[in-house]
């Protein structure tokens, strides 16, 4: 299955959102996820099934000012 993660098309071998986060090896604290422009609550990550060409946005927080 191919899904878009933060705009990047990726081949993944998983079926749920929670498995995607594990596969990407992302720190799970204080991140949020949007699936096809709708926020998915953290409690629903396990039960949220992904399908081909889903668009997933995973965000965290950064400070202001110059990089």
């Amino acid at each position: 299955m191919k899904v878009f993660v933060n705009g990047e098309l990726r081949e993944v071998k998983i079926s749920t959102l929670a498995e995607l986060i594990t596969e990407l090896d992302l720190p799970v604290a204080r991140i949020a996820i949007e699936l096809n422009r709708e926020v998915v609550r953290r409690s629903d990550w396990d039960s949220t099934m992904l399908k081909d060409e889903d668009r997933i946005e995973i965000v965290h927080f950064v400070g202001g000012g110059k990089n």
């Binding site: 993660v5 933060n6 705009g7 990047e8 990407l24 090896d25 992302l26 720190p27 604290a29 204080r30 991140i31 949020a32 946005e57 995973i58 965000v59 965290h60 927080f61 950064v62 400070g63 202001g64």
Partner: peptide, 18 residues
């Protein structure tokens, strides 16, 4: 303190600002 929302780098290159 105010913080902005941005895409997580998928290569784990940055630590959490928080």
């Amino acid at each position: 303190v105010t913080v902005a929302v941005r895409r997580v780098p998928l290569d784990r290159s940055s630590e959490s600002f928080l």
